[in-house]
């Protein structure tokens, strides 16, 4: 019920330039109409069900709620319901073996929906599939954004603040694919916030240090910040990122530790040094629980971690920081100055 409430409270969000259509229902499809009805929209979610079957009855309210939200945002997406009791042909053709089964139809291909079966998760999944320039966000959005593994900028605005909406719409196209832009509308009457609107939250799941935005919300400041945000201050070195680091030829400072907590601690410690050397040095953490062999090959004693080591890709040399000393910003700063 809370989710439904949240969704309804967010309905005014995109209504500025859009006119809502009539209150929507779930679209009922049959074997003949299924293809046409699902391809009439950019994205459709089809639910294959049985009448008078409790698990299907349970999900119906959630689907209706998600359909209404989509309709009111005027998104190019639909929810379709198919009764496999009466439409056996299409259900057999699609190999439906249990109920409810949820599938997503997008660009003519069908994939499985295996997320949670509540209206908010279903709605989020469809939005993800549509991938709009600016995401309308709500309370449960954070996990969705984290799962994308790219940085996110979330602007909180007062619901009638059209200027800030336009601002984020204006810079969003430059960052498509590298940063997710989100907007949360607050109604001051129903939902007072403690901070002054507008403000910006930053999420950067792949950055080992916390980034905050405290500048004025104007186009240039936000644009500059987004530029910097799209490159992590302290990234992660692993098989998916190693090639990028090596090809950049920029010397890499590894923060090597066994636990996530230790890596984040050291990353926070050296944040000032990383900021100072942004552009001339890369900083990344290395999970030595998994990739201990790499730390070993770089010259660290893997029994005395956390440790820090710098790899110069051009000179093909590595410089481990003295592991007998506790890591501090001053120590790292001095060490870097002595090398470069």
């Amino acid at each position: 019920m809370g989710q439904v409430g949240t969704l309804i409270s967010l309905l005014p969000l995109l209504l500025v330039t859009l006119t809502p259509k009539a209150w929507s229902k779930l679209i009922e499809a049959n074997s003949d109409s299924f293809n046409a009805q699902s391809s009439a929209y950019a994205v459709s979610l089809a639910t294959f069900c049985l009448s008078n079957y409790k698990p299907c009855d349970d999900i119906r309210g959630e689907l209706k709620s998600a359909a209404e939200t989509l309709q009111n945002y005027n998104y190019n997406a639909s929810l379709i319901s198919i009764d496999c009791g009466s439409q056996a042909d299409i259900c057999r053709e699609l190999d439906i073996i249990s109920y409810p089964t949820l599938r997503i139809i997008s660009n003519g291909s069908i994939s499985r929906y295996r997320g949670s079966r509540d209206s908010q998760s279903i709605f989020s999944r469809l939005i993800k599939e549509l991938n709009p320039l600016v995401w309308p966000l709500e309370d449960g959005y954070l996990e969705d954004i984290k799962s994308l593994s790219i940085p996110a900028l979330v602007i909180h605005v007062e619901e009638n603040d059209h200027l800030t909406r336009q601002l984020i719409q204006a810079i969003a196209p430059d960052f498509r694919g590298s940063i997710v832009m989100g907007i949360v509308a607050h109604s001051m009457q129903d939902d007072p916030v403690e901070r002054d609107l507008p403000f910006v939250d930053v999420y950067h799941p792949m950055d080992e240090v916390t980034r905050t935005f405290d500048g004025p919300v104007d186009q240039k400041t936000l644009d500059d910040f987004a530029q910097r945000l799209s490159r992590p201050l302290v990234g992660r070195f692993d098989p998916t990122t190693s090639e990028t680091y090596e090809k950049s030829k920029v010397p890499l400072v590894y923060i090597c530790a066994d636990t996530d907590r230790e890596r984040k601690e050291v990353a926070e410690l050296v944040r000032s040094v990383a900021t100072k050397n942004h552009g001339s040095l890369h900083f990344a953490t290395l999970d030595t629980q998994r990739y201990g062999f790499h730390a070993y090959q770089l010259g660290l004693d893997i029994d005395k971690l956390p440790g820090l080591v710098i790899q110069d890709f051009l000179g093909k040399a590595t410089f481990p920081l003295d592991q007998e000393e506790p890591i501090t910003a001053e120590l790292v700063d001095g060490f870097i100055s002595s090398l470069f």
Partner: peptide, 23 residues
């Protein structure tokens, strides 16, 4: 935990939500 490899889908109901475990 549901397996990631789609080849299991011949034996497992891959339309079940992840949180439902393995069917």
């Amino acid at each position: 935990s549901p397996p990631k490899d789609d080849r299991w889908c011949q034996f497992i109901d891959c339309d079940e939500p992840y949180e439902a475990g393995v069917t």
